[in-house]
Design a protein around this nucleic acid. Structure first.
Length: 861
RNA sequence: GGAUGCUUAGCUCAGCGGGAGAGCAUCGCCCUUACAAGGCGGGGGUCACAGGUUCGAAACCUGUAGCAUCCACCA
């Protein structure tokens, strides 16, 4: 027997462990079933999981549990990501704080040992959180992006792409993070509008008295300047092109040149060129064969090229240099501007564009394959559709991917240089370290994540059982913020190496924000820890909240009251179940429903149950979880709890078959409700399920309710609707008349009950002290319904009744007018669907009849 | 400069071609034997604005305004 109050803590205890031990989460338990597979987006081993993870994984868990329930062999692969930069930064910070050492003090090997310790610690935390949330992942298949299998796959991919000419080493302008001291890819740079200054300097022209003005936001890069450019069509400067100008930073002479690239309208129309510290200037430098002069080092300090400014940080240098130029009289003016500045995603420092030798993936051929595939039948389907555009746009304009990182925590690049000859070899084999020196750098974390859906299934061994059975995966769930980082890269790697898209569908969700709609962040301190929420409301309430309040692709706010209301809802179901359980008794044996023995109210609730099953399944299949759960919510609250469950008390008070049938119906409906809510809230539904008679070992042994068309019964539903209408009228009548809801009334019906036992239900729901049926008309003070009337004796206030009749008259007239207008419209009759027209006609007739009796009644009052 | 999304009840949001919905808040009544973490009843919306398509538009199209977000090398 269930306790009176639903207590999440006791309900949740032990269930996860039991499921796990009994292998319910394991894929491949029944190979006769159709496979359905997913991979978890591997969380970073950098810390605790946040609400965003809870949302992402809850959606996946609902899918996994639902698919199992409808009969699939579900494999859901868990795992974690080593998260190169992020983890290394955290480990370094910890070492600094706790031991006062840097990674360089420990050396590569020593540092990696610490990093692995960190990994194990945080993996434990993450495992505990997964358990708490209830994720039904297959632990026997758990992977890590740095494990042996993934590492082998990474090497294989790197070497293959290298041999195909799709990976190359090159010297280009890359985004350099001077704090973490590593290269970054373009998408790891966050562009933000920052306040800055635009400095206008005077450049004297050698051999003339003339000068021109050049504007820059970055004076410190002037030590790397090799030219000044103007537009060849710019009349202001035409006569000066070809002359030398004096760089006011160091007094050096550099040429004034012309190139179409320069925008005449921007700034002064004259632009300084720093080929080693600006991507556009780099291109100009290449075009004109300039020297590439680096004047800023890896820590963003000035080097020897900066002369007396050497050793200053780029900002100190900027300040000092501007002062000096001003003192020399060459500063024209300083303007405030806001301009877009690149920041490192991880360290938030201003990224320094810098010439550097790095490894790159040649993106164009890979991207083209993606674009071609998206036009065919093997395309990846996005839910919602619009996100496909994000992928396509990015792929269309994508630049080569800088994949080398100057870190230690990651997959070391499998490139070796011969110590004697300098020969470069790229190979999967481990080379003799006495002869060959391996590249010091590691790969971008996303390089390994990109292989996740197939490498976790055993690839590159194409004969691996899991790979053969479960690849391509069925669906991927992830946030829109990592379509570039992850989704797109999985797609192109998968297409290149397996010839298939890695998943059929991608379900995109949004971000979870705080109650004010702000992004949750450490600096704002507005983050919500899912574990706190679970402590307070239980994990089922959190899961229900998350999935009932999210629309695919849209951001949502975390609102505490909504989690509370989710818990209330679960408490409601809990109590309904407690009631049903009490009614059934311990010796109840379930019987299948028999259409012939069902009473009118039984048939009506069963009809509604069937429609609910159908609608909920349809929404679940489309991954519209909030739609599905709100359909269910309405059924549970209105149709079951408020209506049928209350009405069942009448039949249960009797003895015999009617009572037994009612028990069967209560059992079936209750069980189906539990089975449908189960994917959302597995813990509480397991508890309720196990309290029902004739249960199996676990709710996970059950199948999803089936829609049975033969159990529909439109007439019963209509009869129920009239009964409910009458109940509502009486309640309303009491309320407006100032009577208490439970005030006693006497009821009379004429000329006959719509079905047997009608009056018992009316009595039960309206606190009637007596009830009778009369053949003759009831006179002035009665309520009217299609085919019969009802009177509340004694307490009736004619004025109130008249008010109600007038209101009825008004609504009916309005409805009739509406119907008549519709049906009188030749366009409607000609073009609307038949069913719609019939419906409308029936309504019109019914309303007309009712209106007539209302008018008669009013006249007789 | 491109692209996308949003604008619906006091608040947070669903709905996205056939009669305006939910949760919370609010007002009134009720400890009725599943549930007071509850029950019953009510109030509250020209669905941003302007055109158009349609028999029919909150929903589709076009434009306008405001607010978000993403992408982009303008020194």
């Amino acid at each position: 027997m269930l306790d009176k109050h639903y207590d999440p803590r006791t309900v949740e205890a032990g269930k996860y462990e039991k499921w796990k031990e009994n292998d319910y989460f394991k894929g491949g338990r029944d190979l006769s079933k159709k496979p359905f597979s997913m991979v978890i987006p591997p969380p970073n081993v950098t810390g605790k999981l946040h609400l965003g993870h809870a949302m992402d994984t809850t959606i996946e868990d609902i899918i996994a549990r639902y698919k199992r329930e409808v009969g699939y062999d579900v494999l859901w692969v868990p795992g974690m990501d080593h998260a190169g930069i992020a983890t290394q930064a955290k480990v370094e910070a910890k070492l600094r704080a706790e031991e006062g050492v840097s990674r360089f003090d420990l050396g590569r090997e020593g540092f990696l040992k610490k990093a692995w310790e960190w990994k194990h610690e945080y993996a434990d935390t993450i495992h505990a959180q997964w358990a708490k949330i209830g994720l039904s992942v297959d632990y026997s298949r758990e992977r890590f992006t740095l494990d042996e299998g993934l590492s082998a796959a990474v090497r294989h991919v790197f070497v293959t792409l290298y041999n195909e000419g799709l990976i190359y080493q090159g010297e280009k302008i890359i985004n350099w993070d001077p704090e973490l001291r590593t290269a970054l890819s373009n998408i790891e740079v966050i562009h933000r509008d920052d306040e800055g200054e635009f400095f206008y300097f005077q450049y004297d022209i050698v051999g003339t008295n003339e000068s021109l003005t050049v504007a820059t936001t970055r004076p410190e890069t002037m030590f790397g300047d090799t030219a000044v450019f103007v537009n060849p069509n710019d009349k202001k400067y035409k006569h000066l092109v070809g002359k030398m100008v004096i760089n006011p930073a160091n007094g050096e002479e550099i040429p004034l040149m012309a190139d179409e690239y320069v925008d005449i309208e921007f700034g002064t129309g004259a632009m300084k060129c720093t080929p080693a510290h600006d991507p556009n200037d780099f291109l100009l430098g290449k075009k004109y064969g300039f020297e590439f002069i680096k004047c800023i080092d890896e820590t963003a300090h000035m080097n020897e090229k900066a002369g007396k400014y050497q050793g200053m940080s780029r900002y100190e240098c900027r300040k000092a240099l501007v002062e000096d130029i001003k003192a020399a009289g060459k500063l024209i003016k300083i303007e405030k501007i806001t301009h877009s500045v690149g920041h490192s995603e991880r360290s938030d420092t201003v990224v320094e564009p810098m010439l550097s030798k790095q490894w790159f993936v040649r993106m164009k051929p890979l991207a083209e394959k993606v674009l071609a595939t998206q036009k065919g039948s093997d395309k990846v389907n996005f839910i919602p559709k619009r996100f496909e555009k994000v992928l396509i746009q990015w792929m269309s304009g994508v630049e080569d991917w800088c994949i080398s990182r100057q870190l230690w925590w990651g997959h070391r690049i499998p490139a070796y240089t011969n110590i004697k000859t300098g020969e470069l070899v790229v190979t999967e084999e481990a080379m003799d370290p006495t002869l060959w020196k391996q590249d010091e750098d590691v790969l971008d974390t996303w390089f390994s994540s990109a292989l996740w859906p197939f490498a976790t299934l055993g690839w590159p061994n194409e004969e691996a059982a899991d790979f053969k059975r479960y690849f391509p995966t069925s669906v991927l769930v992830t946030g829109y913020d990592i379509i570039f980082f992850w989704v797109s890269r999985m797609v192109f790697q998968s297409l290149h190496f397996t010839d298939k898209s890695p998943f059929h569908e991608v379900v995109i969700h949004g971000l979870i924000r705080d109650a004010q709609g702000r992004k949750m962040s450490k600096s704002l301190g507005n983050g919500v820890d899912p574990i706190d929420v679970i402590e307070k409301y239980g994990v089922d309430a959190l899961r229900y909240f998350i999935t009932n309040n999210t629309t695919p692709g849209m951001d949502m706010r975390y609102i505490d009251e909504k989690v509370a209301s989710a818990q209330n809802y679960l408490n409601k179901i809990w109590n309904a179940c407690r009631y049903v359980e009490g009614v059934l008794g311990e010796d109840y044996t379930p019987r299948p429903l028999n259409k012939k023995t069902l009473g009118v109210l039984d048939a009506a609730i069963v009809d509604k149950l069937m429609r609910t099953i159908k609608a909920v399944r349809a929404e679940m299949d489309k991954y519209h979880f909030s739609q599905a759960s709100s359909i269910l919510y309405n059924f549970v609250y209105d149709d079951f709890c408020s209506s049928y469950l209350e009405m069942s008390k009448v039949a249960l008070a009797k003895e015999g078959e009617e009572k037994e049938v009612t028990k069967d119906v209560l059992y079936t409906v209750m069980k189906d409700i539990i089975l449908m809510i189960y994917p959302y809230t597995p813990f509480v539904t397991e508890e309720m399920y196990l309290s029902l008679p004739a249960h199996k070992e676990s709710i996970m042994d059950e199948l999803y309710p089936e829609y049975d068309r033969t159990l529909l019964n439109k007439k019963a539903v209509e009869k129920l609707a009239i009964l409910e209408g009458m109940i509502k009228d009486i309640r309303n009548y009491k309320s407006t008349g100032g009577m208490a809801p439970n005030a006693k009334v006497k009821l009379v019906i004429s000329p006959a009950e719509p079905f047997k036992g009608y009056g018992d239900y009316l009595k039960r729901f309206t606190f009637a002290s007596s009830y009778e049926v009369k053949k003759e008309n009831l006179g002035g003070s009665s309520f009217l319904y299609p085919g019969f009337e009802m009177m509340v004796e004694e307490d009736v206030d004619p004025a109130l009744l008249k008010e109600k009749l007038l209101k009825d008259k008004e609504t009916l007239s309005f409805e009739i007018a509406r119907s008549e207008k519709m049906l009188g419209n030749p366009g409607f009759v000609a073009k609307a669907p038949k069913e719609k027209i019939e419906n409308e006609t029936q309504k019109l007739e019914k309303n007309k009849a009712l209106l007539e009796s209302v008018l008669n009644k009013l006249a007789s009052l």
